[in-house]
Structures are given as C-alpha cells and as structure tokens.
C-alpha cells in the first residue's frame, strides 16, 4: 500500500518532436472511437434530458401535450406554492438528519475497522444492507415498524413501553425515513471513508504512540485532518443522493401523513405523474433542485478544500 497518493510530478517533455505530434493526430480517430460510447450515453441520458427539462420548465407542457412557451410563469407559481416550500423544508430536515447521523456513524465504523480489524468478513457484513434495494428496505421497515403488527412495536410493548407511530406521526416520519436510509447506506459510506483511512501512513500513528497520545487524541490530530479531503468528497456525493430521496417515501408514506414527508423529489413526481400531469411545473421545480444541489456542491468543495491534501 502506497503511503503517498499525490501523483508524482508529471514528466514534461522538453520539446515535442514532429514525429510524436504526427502520431497523436493519427491516434485521434481511434481515440474518438473509444470516447464515442460514453459520449452517446452522456448526451442521450444526461445532456439531452437536462436541456429538455430546462426548456420544459418554461412551457405549459403536460404529459400529453407539448405545450407552449409561458416565460417565468412556472417559477412564479413555485415561489408562491406553499407545498413546494414545505417540501423544501422537509427535504432539508431529512438531509440534515440523514447525512449527519450517517457520516458520524460511517467514520466511527471505518475507524474501528481501520484500527481494530482487517477482516474481510467484517467489511462484507458492514456492506450487506447496501445490497438490499431501497424499495425492499422500505417495505421491510414498513412491516417492522407498523403500529399494530410491527415487530419493533410488539417488542416495545412486551418490554413495558408504548407503541410508537413511526411512519404515522408527523414529527417522527422524517427521522424514521432518514434512519432507515442511514441503515442502508452507512456501510457503503463507511467503506469509502475506510479507503481514505488506508492512505494515512501507519508511521504517523507509531510516532503518536511513541509520544504517548491516546487513541482519541490520535483520531483528532492525525486521522481527522488527513481524512478531510476524502470526507469532503464523501459528503458531497452522499448529500446529493440524500437530496434526491424518493423511493423510501414513495413506498412507505406517499408523502404523508398530510405532507409531513412530502420531499421535493416526491412532490415533483406527483405533480408530473399523478395530479395534473404538469410537466412544465414539475420541470421548473427540478431545475430549482438542480441549482440548489450545484450550489451546495460548489460550496462544500470549497469549504472542505476537497481537492487539496494536507499530506505534504
């Protein structure tokens, strides 16, 4: 395992000779051929839908009619729509809980794996929930946490506690969904953090031990600072995924009770497919979500200096 991940300075040729330049020109068709499949995928599945989505947000298109240009009407409607702002608040509350708990747990698990065991079996077990699909996980917890018949509530009552309306209580529904998704994703996040941990050279810990530092101290002064760029990237990736929470809500609560779990992606889906088939308005909200996510990503990238490493 290499201790230093920073790329070695790239050897730069002093002068490019004519032959190599000609060779590069000859390589161009082949290079393009290799890039083509990925480009087609990118254009068809990302670029085109994105451009089309932005265009639709300025139209009154429905599922069945192409619609015409309406300017900023959809955006004006969005700003005045209390359900949209509720969805926005609910989503942020979800992201805060989901990412907060998930990141803390993931670092804890990763550090334990790093400091205590190298066992592949343990790593495998940690990853297992991630192999369960979101829909299956949602259905599983829907049954486990059911107020009447759920295993968890049966146990709670047997132990003398009260039954809890996990999915039916307005104040508990988002924390419940957030924790269900933590259960599913924490292992994967932990592995990403674990990969970052492995780039930290062992001799730093040896030095720390020689100086008589405790595990906690070493975590604070060695692990955390050197993990920062990895943690930054993990945060950006998981947060974007978290903002897009949909399947758990769709399966477990359909946005209820009374909009308490109506997250933004679910609201967009509903507007587009089950109430007015209003593709124009749904697209406008999608564009808004894209802007928010882009802003957060850039901010995070800057704040965590995820492209810089403190390991000199």
């Amino acid at each position: 395992m290499s201790a230093v991940t920073e790329a070695a300075p790239r050897p730069r040729p002093l002068r490019e000779d004519v032959a190599s330049r000609r060779r590069r020109v000859q390589d161009l068709p082949v290079a393009l051929l290799f890039i083509l499949p990925a480009t087609i995928g990118f254009v068809v599945f990302l670029l085109w839908p994105t451009l089309r989505g932005v265009w639709l947000s300025f139209t009154d298109a429905t599922a069945f009619q192409p619609g015409g240009f309406v300017g900023l009407e959809n955006y004006q409607r969005m700003v005045a729509d209390p359900v949209f702002w509720n969805a926005f608040r609910v989503t942020i509350w979800y992201v805060v809980l989901n990412i907060g708990v998930q990141t803390a747990l993931a670092v804890l698990i990763a550090v334990l794996m790093h400091r205590l065991t190298r066992s592949m079996v343990v790593r495998g077990i940690v990853l297992t929930p991630y192999l369960v699909s979101n829909v299956v996980a949602a259905m599983l917890f829907l049954m486990l946490l059911d107020y009447q018949l759920g295993f968890v509530n049966e146990v709670a009552e047997a132990l003398g506690g009260d039954r809890v309306m996990f999915f039916g209580d307005q104040s508990l529904v988002i924390p419940t969904i957030a924790l269900v998704n933590v259960w599913r994703h924490v292992g994967y996040t932990a592995l990403l953090v674990f990969a970052g941990l492995q780039t930290i050279p062992e001799n730093l810990y040896e030095a720390g031990r020689v100086d008589g530092a405790s595990e906690l101290r070493m975590f604070r002064s060695i692990t955390l600072p050197l993990l920062r760029p990895y943690l930054g990237l993990v945060l950006i990736v998981t947060m974007i995924g978290s903002f897009q929470v949909f399947d758990t809500v769709s399966v477990a609560t359909q946005g209820g009770p009374a909009n308490a779990s109506n997250v933004i992606q679910y609201y967009i889906y509903e507007v587009a497919f089950s109430r007015g088939y209003d593709f124009g308005y749904a697209s406008a909200m999608s564009v808004a979500l894209m802007v928010v996510l882009a802003t957060i990503s850039i901010l995070q990238f800057r704040l965590t200096r995820a492209n810089q490493n403190d390991m000199a």
Partner: peptide, 9 residues
C-alpha cells in the same frame, strides 16, 4: 445530476 429524473423515467 438527475434533476430530470421524472422525465428520464
């Protein structure tokens, strides 16, 4: 980013 997820779907 998948902001056009519903459309893509």
């Amino acid at each position: 980013m998948r902001k056009t997820a519903p459309l893509a779907l």
